[in-house]
Design a protein around this nucleic acid. Sequence first.
DNA 1: CCTCGATGCTTGAGAACTTCAAGCAATAGC
DNA 2: GCTATTGCTTGAAGTTCTCAAGCATCGAGG
Lengths: 149, 149
Amino acid sequence: MTGTSGVDSDQLMELLSVSLGAYYGDFTVAAASENLTASQGKTLNVLRRGPAAMRTLATILTCDASNMTGIVDRLEKRGLVRREPSPTDRRVKNVVLTAEGERVIDVIRGKMHATRAGLDRLSGEERDTLYALLERAFTSRPATLRPSA
Amino acid sequence: MTGTSGVDSDQLMELLSVSLGAYYGDFTVAAASENLTASQGKTLNVLRRGPAAMRTLATILTCDASNMTGIVDRLEKRGLVRREPSPTDRRVKNVVLTAEGERVIDVIRGKMHATRAGLDRLSGEERDTLYALLERAFTSRPATLRPSA
DNA sequence: CCTCGATGCTTGAGAACTTCAAGCAATAGC
DNA sequence: GCTATTGCTTGAAGTTCTCAAGCATCGAGG
């Protein structure tokens, strides 16, 4: 009994879609509880890493730049983000999380009980392993900081 | 340097969101190349496991049942799915993938090159490990078949 | 049987999301 | 300085999404 190599690529893809679907559902419910749509929540989530230009947000969220305009408009109207002109390129507007926006996204993350409970089923060592595997499979470079203009 | 237990829950959550973003972006682009929206693609993806009632789809996709009506309407209009009355409950409509729908979702899955390439960076043994960890964290029961009416 | 509450699906209204085509401002390469 | 490119916004058209209502059916009690 080898115990290895029982899983082919398709099975793993399938489980990935189920797992990420569960995560996404958890996130959507948590965002809704703060009166945010999934797209608005995802935008705040990205901005939690730091300010980003409209174009950068559109690239990360895999959507048209014109789409971000409306989403950021609505977030700004609620005081969750702020548009700041880039000091180095006057075409660019950097979107920044306000203190309130930061609070809201942290609340949302805290409400993702299903995901948290799932991860708690793993030991510390297993979480380390999961982290390393996901990092290798889904990030081009190791997740270190990268300079921006 | 122990090499263990360096990752806390928040870091793992963050990486999960990055992974989900990468997977979802890959999927969205692939679906768009077949002229499907992300929601339509996700619906086909769920149906790939087998027929499901409208209500079941809504639950899995974490949305209102009335939302599914429109999505399934448009998929049906394209001949990718079919509504069949449940033999046991006349309120229920089971949504079934047509041959063409099956073909399309398989094409989409095949076009997820970024995800596939990412998984290919892992060894067979690592994929087994990833599978086991995801299964434990994100599925209530081990992913075996479960009877349905 | 038959009434009553719960469930499954659909419809319609209103808001948000999404993309595309177009346009303006600013940058970058020549 | 010219020209092509890039970043952002606007407007139009279709899709998604939720909520409130409504209809049909099921299920449990009387």
